[in-house]
């Protein structure tokens, strides 16, 4: 199953060009917690875990259970070693690794690759049609 998902993601990567977008600086982030950032017209929640190899995680900020953009406000932690965020209204847990909801499997958050480039916080997103054209021009 995991293998199949990887292949799909790989094929998706092939099919669509992706780019790293800078959304802010390290100093905009809250250690051990999340912030919201706008990428294109999408709200993304970015979590910085200094205590876990200085990792950045990015997932969609929209909570499918409450219908509110508030994932960034959730408490991060781990369930059995898997990093998760707890959605602050009704406390379900979403995996920061694959975005799945641990309690209600029909829900899933979009996940985005995220990194520090120097002090810049970057998120990788598909190149949208418009920006792609602009690049081409």
């Amino acid at each position: 199953m995991a293998e199949a998902l990887q292949v799909e993601a790989h094929q998706a990567g092939k099919a669509q060009a992706r780019e790293w977008v800078t959304v802010g600086k390290r100093s905009d982030l809250i250690p051990g917690s999340g912030v919201g950032a706008l990428v294109g017209d999408q709200q993304v929640a970015v979590f910085w875990l200094p205590e876990l190899y200085d990792t950045l995680y990015a997932v969609s900020n929209y909570c499918p259970i409450s219908g509110v953009h508030l994932i960034a406000r959730g408490i991060v932690g781990d369930v059995g070693g898997e990093p998760v965020v707890a959605t602050p209204l009704y406390k379900q847990h979403f995996s920061l690794l694959d975005g799945r909801c641990l309690e209600e499997s029909e829900h899933r958050l979009q996940i985005y690759p995220a990194r520090f480039l120097g002090s810049a916080v970057q998120i990788e997103v598909p190149v949208t049609g418009r920006s792609h054209r602009r690049q081409a021009a």
Binding site: I30, P31, G32, S33, S66, V68, H69, L70, R73, G74, I75, V76, P88, L89
Partner: peptide, 22 residues
Amino acid sequence: EDQHVGLQDTNDTFLANMQKDG
């Protein structure tokens, strides 16, 4: 404080009571 902020529930983080619409 930096060392406490990530521990707080949303209401304590933002010093206000979050309602159903966020």
